[in-house]
Structures are given as structure tokens and as C-alpha cells.
């Protein structure tokens, strides 16, 4: 058995994890960066995205691609609106006090989880991918002095998995463009840098907060919609994304979006590779150890500029 093809396969699996993780973690990072809110319910918004994707895909019916396309747009939208409402009715009432928002979002976590259990039920349900061609993984070998492409037996990925990676990259570019190139992005950054001065220059900070909280949740939901054809929707699926997102955000540097993306790729790839060659548990252990090391030796994160 050659090692190379398997490493390529593991990296591809890792890249899918990284792509979804990057979307989810950027949502968490955005909320923390702008609002200084540690959103413990972030994983539940992820779960809600997956469950809604199943519900929408089932309701729409027809060709799987149709239901999925609708879910891709509508599920993040619904989750975003729900999150914005939660912000206005709960987080605003506790005045975004750091400790109280943690308790409030823990409450939110249980409410979302239990309501999903009561309505959607305890089953894990799949969503059919819009397209799913099996793609053999190519590798090169040396035959009689020249390099040749061949397909090692039994190793494959799917076109859908590659699409997930591409879609995540496109969305992340979109988020970057939104922040760096638009007025709304400028308003969000000004609010992040100095809330009082933003107010003193006419920025409706509370509306910006509702928007950011909704956007953060919608990004998690979008990640979930992308992953649900691979993973199935379940009411307890929010735990892992939450833990991994926190790991990624801490390693990347709190509130730093480039750092978050870089850390998501690092953690996602290592998770994929270690899971394939050793065990998923070891992958989590190593990720958590990495967080501990980062916290000890570089508390501001790999890309953080200053202590938060």
C-alpha cells in the first residue's frame, strides 16, 4: 500500500471538515469580535440549519437539487432572523453584559435543542445531495522512467464534497468583501472598534448587533446545510461544531477573521488526517492540546494583535 494516495484522501476529507468549520467559526468570531458576546448557542444555530434543511428539502420534494437549493437559501435566512430576534429580545435586555450573555445563550442552547427534539424528534435524517458523482482519486507513479497518472483501487471522493469546499470558499470571500468593501461592513467595523463613538456618529449600534448576531448564526446554518447531505441532521449535532469553533477561534485569535479561517484549515485538515490514520478521538485530543498550548504561549491567538 502506498501512503500518498491515502494522505490525499484524508486531506480531502479534512478539507471538507475545514470548509464547514471555517463557515461556522467565522460566524462565532464575527459575533465575538463585534459584540464581545460569547455565543454558547452557536452550535444550536448550526443544528437548526441542518434540521431546517431536511424539513425544507422534504417539503419541496421534486428533484433533490431543487429542495437543496431552496434549503441553501431559506434555512440560513430563517436561522438568521431567529437569531436576530433572540438578540433583540434576550441579549439586548441583559445589556450585552459578558457573564449574563453566556448564561442567556446557554438558556438559548437548551430551548432550541429541546424544541427541536419535541418537534423534529430524536431521529437522524439524511438530506439527499443535489449531485453526487463518485470521483476516483488519481495518483502518480513512475512507470519505465516516466510519470503516469493512475487511479488506486477503492479510493474515491464525491463531486458533492468538492462542491462543499468550493462553496465555503466563495461564501468566505463574500464575507470578506462585505466587511472590507461595503458600507455595512464599515459600520460593523466601526461598531467593533468603538461602540460609543459609533453611536456618537449616528450608527444604530443595537441594529448592527442584531444584524451581526443574525449573520453569525446564518453562517453556522449555511455550514450545516452544506454538510447535512454528508452527515445527517440530528438534534444533538451542534455540540461538535461548537467545541471545534471555539477551538478554532481561540487558536486563530479572538475576533480575527483571517486567523479564524487559517485555524479552521489547520484544525480541519489535521482532524481529517488524524481521523483517517489514527482515530477521531485522538484528533480531538490533539486539537484541545493545541488550544492549551496556544493559551499558554500566545494567549492572543496565532493571528491576534492584542489581548482582548
Amino acid at each position: 500500500m502506498e501512503f500518498g494516495p491515502y494522505l490525499l484522501l484524508a486531506s480531502l476529507e479534512g478539507a471538507v471538515t475545514a470548509a464547514v468549520l471555517a463557515l461556522t467559526a467565522v460566524g462565532l468570531s464575527l459575533v465575538f469580535g463585534v459584540m464581545r458576546v460569547v455565543n454558547v448557542a452557536h452550535g444550536e444555530f448550526f443544528m437548526l440549519g441542518a434540521v431546517l434543511a431536511w424539513w425544507i428539502a422534504t417539503t419541496v420534494g421534486g428533484h433533490p437539487a431543487l429542495g437543496f437549493a431552496v434549503a441553501l437559501v431559506v434555512a440560513p435566512l430563517i436561522v438568521g432572523v431567529l437569531a436576530a430576534l433572540a438578540d433583540m429580545t434576550v441579549l439586548k435586555r441583559v445589556a450585552y453584559d459578558p457573564e449574563r450573555t453566556i448564561v442567556a445563550t446557554i438558556g438559548l442552547l437548551y430551548i432550541i435543542q429541546q424544541v427541536t427534539l419535541m418537534t423534529y424528534g430524536p431521529e437522524a435524517r439524511p438530506v439527499e445531495p443535489p449531485f453526487n458523482h463518485r470521483l476516483a482519486i488519481p495518483w502518480i507513479e513512475r512507470v519505465e522512467g516516466s510519470w503516469q497518472l493512475y487511479y488506486p483501487w477503492g479510493l474515491s471522493t464525491t463531486s458533492y464534497k468538492l462542491a462543499v469546499i468550493g462553496a465555503a470558499a466563495v461564501v468566505l470571500l463574500g464575507v470578506w468583501a462585505l466587511l472590507a468593501r461595503t458600507r455595512i461592513g464599515l459600520v460593523m467595523r466601526a461598531t467593533q472598534l468603538d461602540r460609543d463613538m459609533a453611536t456618537a456618529f449616528g450608527i444604530p449600534v443595537e441594529r448592527v448587533y442584531a444584524l451581526v448576531f443574525g449573520l453569525g448564526a446564518a453562517l453556522a446554518a449555511l455550514g450545516a446545510v452544506l454538510v447535512v447531505p454528508i452527515q445527517q441532521a440530528h438534534y444533538l449535532m451542534g455540540g461538535d461544531p461548537l467545541l471545534l469553533s471555539f477551538i478554532v477561534v481561540i487558536i486563530g485569535g479572538l475576533g480575527s477573521l483571517p486567523g479564524t479561517v487559517a485555524a479552521a484549515i489547520l484544525i480541519g485538515l489535521s482532524d481529517g488526517i488524524i481521523s483517517v490514520f489514527f482515530s477521531p478521538t485522538l484528533a480531538k485530543i490533539i486539537a484541545t492540546l493545541l488550544v492549551a498550548l496556544v493559551l499558554v504561549f500566545r494567549p492572543q491567538g496565532l493571528f491576534g494583535t492584542r489581548a482582548a
Binding site: 458600507r183 464599515l186 459600520v187 467595523r189 466601526a190 472598534l193 468603538d194 463613538m197 459609533a198 456618529f201 449616528g202 450608527i203
Partner: peptide, 15 residues
């Protein structure tokens, strides 16, 4: 707004 450019700081004022 320290991390923003001069032009962006003015933009916030203009908005």
C-alpha cells in the same frame, strides 16, 4: 476608529 483608514473614518462621519 484606529484600524480604519483616514478615508474610512471620514466616511463614518459623512454617513
Amino acid at each position: 476608529f484606529g484600524e480604519l483608514t483616514v478615508a474610512q473614518n471620514l466616511e463614518v462621519g459623512l454617513m
